[in-house]
Each structure stands twice: as C-alpha cells, then as structure tokens.
C-alpha cells in the first residue's frame, strides 16, 4: 500500500519522505536486559506519529535516550540534521525537541501559571544578572503570561491559574505538563502517555489541540495505549515490542498487522484492540 509519508512501502525502519528525527542502532541495556534495540527509525516531519507497544516495550526508555535523559549503550541520532548523540538534555530541548514524562513532573509548589511561564524559552530574566533588572524582562514576561493564559484556557485550566500545581488532580497535572511543554513552542513535541488519567470529557478537546499543533507545523510523537485515539488522530504508527520496532505504517494498516496483534495480545488475538481505551479512561482520579 502506498502513502505520502514513507518512501516506498511501510515496513519497520522504513525511510520517510521528510524525516525530522532519524535514529540508527540505538540500544540500551540495563544489566542483562535489553530495553531498547532500534536498528533504524525515522519520524516524519509535520505529522502526528503514535508510538505504541505493550508495557515494558521500551517506549519510555527510547524517549529518554533520544532526549538526552539517559545514555545509550550504542547509537546515533539526528534532529533536523543535527547530531544529537551525547548532547545534554537541556540543549536537546533548546533545539526544539520537548518531551513530557509518563510519571507527571508538575512542579508542585509552584503555581499553575508559574509552571507555564517556566516553559517559555528566551526569557532574559532567567539569566543571573539580568534577573535583577526588571525592565530587561518585564515585556517578555507579559507576553509569556498572555501566551500561558491562552493555553490554560485551551486546556481548561484557567480557573486554576494561581493555585499550586500540587492541588491539581492527576489528569489535570498531565494537561499542565503538556501545556507547559507547548509554551516552549517546540518543533517536535514528544508526549509520553498524555491521555493516561485525563478526564474522558477533556480527551476530545485535547485531540483537537494536538491536531491544531499539526496544522501549525509542529511534529508530534506520542506514546499511547488508547487505540481509538491512535486511530483517530495519528498519521503514522510505530509499534515497539521488547525493545525493537516490529511494525510501522498508517494506523488502519498497522491495526491489522499480525505482528502488532501478537505483540499486544499474545494468544488472545480475538480481543478487539479498542477495549483498552475503556480501562484507561476509568483510571482518571
């Protein structure tokens, strides 16, 4: 089957027409366990790519490696043609590759709005000496605050603007973390299970927001267990199992792939993949 994303047919590790991120031979071992072993993968620019796979497949570890939070045993990768292997995580972020965490990292004792402001890049007032001279950063601060308030409204967090992040529910923290990542205006945003624990009533608007991101030219790579969501918004799906990429392709095609069904369900191949979503949606707290 042909598509406009890959060069030729979709297959694990296939070449993309316009990749933003290209990784080669990335592997990570923990003691004897090989958590990640990716021979080659390319993430298409300007698209929404879903990274799926059972728990323990190595998705989070791959995120950690690509964003400089963990050191790979082997491997190189480039982002927009720049070599990223060995680059410190904060520099990766500054290049426009922002990730969120599976276990939310909201900064509990900062207010929601301060969390958001922290996401902004190029705030001169974050420099040691400039911090003392308010005129140097007041204008930027106002602009950042406006941008933050707009995003908070989008994510239905505007009522919580001045509350400590600690007072948010688990789902709200996920939203805050994602909104905060967007404050950085990333070129590639990597979301690790963004929907886990989010109120189902909010999911739809979140999905719309992710689609908006795409229309603004942002590339999205996200890890998700909810197959309905994956099918609904992703342009491309990459499937991991036991550290490797076992399948790739447009959602409709991947869902039918025997390797995927095996990876997820083992012997119980008759169960509909969509049922996963119900379980996850109930986890909201």
């Amino acid at each position: 089957m042909s598509n406009q994303i890959s060069v030729g047919d979709a297959s694990p590790g296939c070449q993309k027409v316009d990749p933003i991120l290209v990784a080669d031979n990335v592997s990570r071992q923990f003691g004897g366990l090989t958590a990640v072993d990716v021979a080659h993968v390319e993430i298409p620019r300007g698209k929404i790519t879903a990274l799926i796979g059972p728990n323990g497949a190595g998705k989070t570890t791959l995120f950690n490696l690509l964003t400089g939070f963990d050191k790979p045993t082997t491997g190189t990768w480039t982002f927009e043609g720049k070599n990223l292997a060995g680059v410190a995580s904060y520099k990766v972020a500054r290049l426009g590759m922002i990730r969120t965490f599976q276990l939310t990292k909201s900064l509990s004792m900062l207010s929601v709005i301060e969390n958001m402001r922290l996401g902004a890049q190029k705030q001169a007032g974050e420099r040691f000496l400039a911090a003392l001279i308010r005129p140097l950063w007041r204008a930027a601060e106002n602009r950042i605050t406006e941008q933050a308030e707009e995003l908070l409204k989008r994510f239905k967090l505007d009522a919580k603007r001045d509350d400590f992040a600690a007072s948010l529910s688990g789902g709200q923290r996920k939203l805050l973390e994602m909104a905060r990542a967007l404050m950085a205006e990333p070129k590639l945003v990597m979301l690790d299970e963004p929907m886990a624990g989010v109120n189902p009533a909010l999911t739809q608007s979140l999905l719309d927001h992710i689609k908006d991101l795409k229309s603004n030219g942002t590339t999205v790579l996200f890890v998700e267990h909810d197959m309905h969501m994956v099918r609904h918004i992703s342009d491309w799906v990459i499937v991991m199992a036991e550290g490797r990429i076992v399948a790739e392709g447009p959602p409709a095609q991947v869902m039918k792939d025997q390797a995927v069904i095996d990876a997820y369900l083992g012997a119980h191949a008759d169960i509909d993949l969509g049922t996963v979503s119900i379980k996850i949606a109930k986890d909201d707290n």
């Binding site: 964003t67 939070f69 995580s89 904060y90 520099k91 972020a93 500054r94 922002i98 990730r99 969120t100 965490f101 990292k105 909201s106 900064l107 509990s108 004792m109 900062l110 301060e114 402001r117 922290l118 996401g119 890049q121 705030q123 007032g125 974050e126 420099r127 040691f128 400039a130 911090a131 003392l132 308010r134 950063w137 601060e141 973390e177 905060r180 990542a181 404050m183 950085a184």
Partner: peptide, 22 residues
C-alpha cells in the same frame, strides 16, 4: 524574577526543568 522561578522549579523537580531547556 524568572531566575527565581527556575531555581524553585529545580527544587521541585530538576528533570522537569531540564526538559524545558534550562
């Protein structure tokens, strides 16, 4: 100042702050 915001963020969770390019 924004500098203070960053260090308070580090107090809370330095990985989160790192992921935001600081």
């Amino acid at each position: 100042s924004p500098w203070g915001r960053v260090v308070k963020g580090i107090r809370e969770d330095e990985d989160a702050v790192r992921s935001l390019g600081k």
